[in-house]
């Protein structure tokens, strides 16, 4: 279990993490979601005692990280796969880690086997591919058989095989009753892996819920209707109290929200309006995520007036 309470980190005038409170529960994979620069890594570093919070605190099993006598036995973390000495072998890297926390040397071979690095264990870590480095980092995180695990963007730069492997791996860890916190800037990735979500933007908490709830609330579906008698159709729908918008980029289509597809078809048939297309359009998770975090993106591009209007409308509508 990880708890943060009012966690805040200020770098000069910039508030990187702003009064962040959330809980990561055992037996669940909690996705830590936010655009790049939202403060995910900084938050994880504060949880792990690497960075010192400006205010607030983070507790692991009720204690700050610095107070854990043998932290690797309680918390495993992979924040950056490159945090190893490039000239040291994978086995030697794990050996010193094990020794520092009084873990039996036999654990080294066990975790090497678990991540599938046994064959290359005596090669220098600097010669590893990114995927192999990630596996070595995961081996280090698993060394102490910890109940709490943190992974920062673990699928970044991995090949599809590695991505599938990590997803299954994290679900298995949670199924064993561990608390797993995994960060990502990709909602679709998280939707596949995480059972719970903590969503942040510009260092602030945007949402904390189950993934299913979040996706349901975030994804609005619209119905796309094309018709040669567009004006008549719009009138019929408006009379029925249904909200209608012009479909962007298509003069002969309407975007209809807030009703189901069958009712639109029935209304059109009743009024004798010819339809050329009637299709459900589900917003992608990326779009949904952009809606929600749209104006919380730290490094948003300069953007045109249209873009700004767009996000202002979304902000007004969505929040």
């Amino acid at each position: 279990m990880i708890e943060t309470r009012g966690l805040t980190k200020r770098y000069g005038p910039t508030l990187a993490v702003d009064d962040l409170s959330f809980t990561v529960r055992p037996g669940r994979v909690t996705g830590f979601l936010g655009p790049n620069g939202a403060g995910k890594s900084t938050t994880m570093r504060m949880i792990l005692g690497l960075d010192r919070p400006t205010s607030g605190h983070a507790l692991i099993g009720g204690r700050p990280y610095e107070d854990l006598p043998h932290p690797l036995r309680e918390v495993g973390a992979l924040l950056d796969a490159k945090w190893v000495h490039p000239n040291r072998s994978a086995r030697a890297h794990l050996r010193w880690l094990a020794r520092s926390n009084r873990l039996p040397a036999a654990r080294v071979d066990e975790v090497l086997d678990q991540v599938g690095l046994t064959a290359v264990a005596d090669r220098r870590a600097g010669t590893f591919s990114l995927g192999m480095s990630q596996r070595l980092g995961i081996a280090g995180a698993l060394l102490g058989d910890p109940g709490v695990l943190l992974f920062d963007e673990p699928v970044n730069g991995l090949d599809p095989e590695g991505i599938v492997w990590i997803r299954r791996f994290m679900r298995d860890l949670a199924a064993e009753g561990r608390s797993v916190l995994v960060s990502s800037h990709l909602l679709p990735e998280m939707a596949l892996t995480a059972t719970d979500l903590v969503v942040i933007g510009r260092g602030r908490l945007i949402a904390e819920s189950t993934t299913a709830e979040f996706v349901e609330g975030a994804v609005t579906s619209t119905v796309r209707v094309r018709s040669p008698q567009l004006l008549e159709l719009a009138e019929v729908l408006l009379r029925a109290g249904i909200d209608v918008q012009a479909e962007p980029g298509d003069d002969e289509a309407l975007a209809v929200a807030g009703t189901d597809i069958a009712r639109i078809g029935e209304l059109a048939a009743g009024a004798g309006v010819v339809l050329h297309e009637l299709a459900l359009h589900r917003a992608s998770l990326e779009e949904a995520f952009m809606h929600i975090t749209g104006h919380d993106v730290e490094y948003s591009a300069g953007g045109s007036a249209g873009d700004r209007n767009h996000s202002a409308v979304l902000a007004a509508a969505g929040r």
């Binding site: 005692g49 690797l72 945090w83 190893v84």
Partner: peptide, 22 residues
């Protein structure tokens, strides 16, 4: 300095958060 330059000092501090002793 090699620990600092490759970032491994963070791995060290994760294994031993009491920086003085380590």
């Amino acid at each position: 300095t090699t620990e600092y330059s490759v970032g491994m000092i963070r791995t060290t501090f994760l294994a031993a958060p009491a920086r003085g002793p380590v």
